[in-house]
Design a protein around this nucleic acid. Structure first.
Length: 474
RNA sequence: GGCGACUUAGCCAAGUGGUAAGGCGUGGGACUGCAACUCCCUGAUCGUCGGUUCAAAUCCGUCAGUCGCCUCCA
């Protein structure tokens, strides 16, 4: 039953069944955040979908070990040695040290993840913890002839590989360097796609983080960290490597080049890439600025889980366009869903026949290239199913292990309303009593006046079958 | 210029050869003094043109549009 999770493998460009290197276990790696600024909701889309993948694997019975790095050094705005380090510019912007910046934004990242019910990976490793490992790998690459030094830096020699462009059918000839105006070409490179493994030449006035190395004092290139950190914690064979589609080239391409050259054998068999969240003007990007964060959504009154649901109702390989209109749509859908579930009576005998059928449908949806939209449909179908509330609740709790939408534990609007003091409560209860009397005497004008009076104070009343209820509008 | 993805009702979206799931919204109805909640009903032939096939949203080709990558990016 385990070997049935299928998803699109960027390496083979087909949907494949995952067959792990070690039976029953999955070694999974995720490129973590660059902690020079807040993660925006587009970044978080990837982490949400990867979270669903991880939980799906666990749901069907795999023992998953997941590792994530934190890029706290070496991420230049350009791969030439003239680019400014993003950590450094973040520190300058906020008048803090690089380490303070890293700490602050790492914490902020995991706080966002917590709000979105994204599980923290089993291992989280900052790049700055692994400098010795980076140096070791670079030494081996130099020994094996896959790397060379030039102009003070160490470069990976892409011409030593038969198949550098593993993810596409592009050839070196077809790739243009400098199609964008702002890219500076590094004259030290032997081949246009060679990339830096170690920098010693730094033009930054205050490069805060530097380490001794056989090539001089300096700092690592961007790609080396993911190779080393994954090897350190997951060993020589990794099953699934995840990230956003924009990492396919050059980052993941370079990781493969380094890792397989270092190891001398095939490294990772399955590559899972999540497509971008766009807004009307195109890709939401950290470097473009003006991006949306989870905190901003909350300030605008949205439950972060509404955003999670927004992501789940789409497919991870499709570009998804963000708009407040669609988020409002989802907000209504989520509130309604939670309310319906909250009303399910916890009664009856567990209906095993129905449960088995729904379990099968649910896991089939997720195992079919992570069809989260279909998984949500299974939830809706279950709510409509002719079976008892206890069975539905039990299944929903189970499905929520993967969906993580707080299906049963989310609070309805009434429950999240601000607390009211006793005085206000007495006042409202009195008014409701007055209104009830007015209604009894068919004095609807007075009844409506009382309702309006309360509404002015932000109190909304509703006549339900069980009597009049009220809540303070948050 | 090269590579790649996407295009299904007002919006989101499933569906990979046999005559279109689901959600939100809209409209109508039931309930309610009214309203809200809830419940019921309500909608598309699948970007264009052409081909393959007994049969295509589903396969092939074409055109168009949108988006992404090509050393900042999830």
């Amino acid at each position: 039953m385990e070997n049935k999770v299928r998803f699109y493998n960027t390496l083979t460009r087909t949907v494949e069944t995952v067959i792990p290197h070690e039976d029953g276990k999955i070694a999974m790696y995720t490129c973590g955040p660059t902690v020079y600024h807040f993660a925006h909701i587009g970044n978080l889309r990837s982490y949400i979908m990867e979270d669903v993948l991880e939980k799906t694997l666990r749901y069907v019975g795999y023992d998953v070990k997941r590792v994530m790095n934190i890029t706290d050094v070496g991420h230049l705005s350009s791969d030439a040695d003239t680019g400014e380090d993003k950590m450094l510019s973040g520190a300058k912007r906020e008048h803090k040290t690089v380490m303070e910046i890293a700490k602050f934004y790492t914490d902020a990242f995991f706080e966002d993840c917590r709000k979105l019910n994204i599980r923290t990976p089993d291992v989280v490793e900052p790049a700055t913890n692994c400098i010795q490992e980076f140096i070791h790998m670079i030494e081996v690459l130099l020994e094996k002839g896959y790397a060379y030094t030039a102009g003070g830096n160490v470069y990976f020699d892409t011409s030593k590989l038969d198949d550098y462009y593993v993810f596409s059918s592009q050839s070196e000839k077809e790739l243009l360097v400098g199609v964008r105006d702002d890219v500076e070409e590094d004259v030290n490179k032997r081949n246009k796609n060679d990339f830096v493994l170690w920098f010693t030449k730094s033009k930054f006035e205050d490069q805060a983080l530097k380490w001794e190395s056989p090539w001089g004092t300096g700092y690592p290139g961007w790609h080396i960290e993911c190779s080393c950190i994954s090897l350190k914690h997951l060993g020589e064979y990794m099953d699934i490597h995840c990230g956003g589609v924009d990492n396919i080239f050059p980052h993941h391409t370079n990781e493969i080049a380094q890792s397989e050259s270092y190891l001398g054998h095939r490294w990772c068999g399955y590559w899972f890439h999540v497509n971008h969240l766009n807004d009307k003007s195109g890709k939401m990007s950290k470097s473009k600025g003006g991006f949306l964060t989870v905190s901003l959504l909350q300030e605008n009154g949205y439950d972060p889980l509404v955003y999670r649901m927004f992501c789940l109702q789409s497919h991870y390989r499709k570009p998804l366009e963000f708009s407040y209109e669609v988020l409002d749509n989802m907000s209504a859908a989520y509130a309604k869903l939670i309310r319906r579930i909250a009303e399910l009576p916890d009664e009856g005998e567990m209906d095993e026949t129905a449960a088995a059928a729904y379990r099968a449908r649910f896991s089939d949806a997720l195992c079919s290239d992570l069809n989260t939209s279909m998984a949500l449909t299974v939830v809706y179908d279950l709510l409509k199913e002719e079976t008892n509330g206890r069975t539905k609740r039990a299944l929903l709790a189970e499905f929520d292990q993967v969906l993580s939408l707080n299906l049963l534990t989310a609070q309805t609007a009434a429950e999240t309303a601000p607390a009211v003091d006793a005085e206000l409560e007495a006042y409202v209860e009195e008014k409701i009593k007055e209104r009830k009397a007015a209604k009894k005497e068919k004095d609807f004008a007075k009844a409506d006046a009382i309702r309006e009076e309360l509404a002015q104070k932000g109190i909304v009343i509703k006549d339900t079958r069980e009597g009049t209820v009220w809540e303070v509008q948050g």
